Simulated scan of single mutants.
Amino acid sequence: MEDFQTISTFNFAHEIIVLKSILQNEGIPFLFQNENLISIDPFASIAYGGIHLKVHRNDLEKVQAILDNLNNNLEIV
């Protein structure tokens, strides 16, 4: 786990659902630190600094491109 770095942080568990599916489909190893804790107690997000997406440093650029694509194409109806 020492080669894994935090690339993004999310406040609530529902924000990572689509991203988790994309990362699994791409075969990218990842870890959402604090995911279970914040799923159980959403108010703990502030105390623990949110849900941290950690990926291997070799995948940082690929994951950043995925995050950028999600942020640019997200439309709320």
Rank of each mutant, 00 (worst) to 15 (best):
Q5I: 15
T6W: 02
T6R: 04
T6G: 04
T6Y: 04
S8F: 12
S8Q: 15
S8L: 08
S8P: 05
T9F: 00
F10E: 00
F10W: 03
F10T: 00
F10L: 02
N11V: 07
F12H: 07
A13E: 06
H14V: 13
H14G: 03
I16G: 00
I16K: 00
I17R: 11
I17V: 15
V18N: 03
L19V: 04
L19A: 03
L19W: 06
L19C: 06
K20R: 13
K20V: 02
K20L: 05
I22H: 06
L23S: 02
N25K: 12
E26C: 12
E26D: 10
G27C: 08
G27M: 12
I28F: 05
P29D: 14
L31K: 07
L31P: 01
F32N: 00
F32R: 01
Q33I: 05
Q33Y: 12
S39C: 09
S39R: 09
S39Q: 05
I40E: 10
D41P: 07
D41G: 01
D41T: 13
P42W: 02
I46Q: 09
I46G: 01
I46S: 10
A47V: 12
A47S: 15
I51E: 00
H52F: 06
H52W: 10
K54Y: 09
K54N: 14
V55Y: 02
H56Y: 11
H56T: 06
R57Q: 14
N58G: 05
D59P: 05
L60S: 12
E61K: 11
E61G: 02
K62A: 13
V63L: 05
Q64E: 14
A65H: 10
N69W: 04
L70M: 11
N71F: 00
N71A: 05
N72H: 11
N72C: 02
E75G: 04
E75F: 04
I76R: 08
I76V: 12
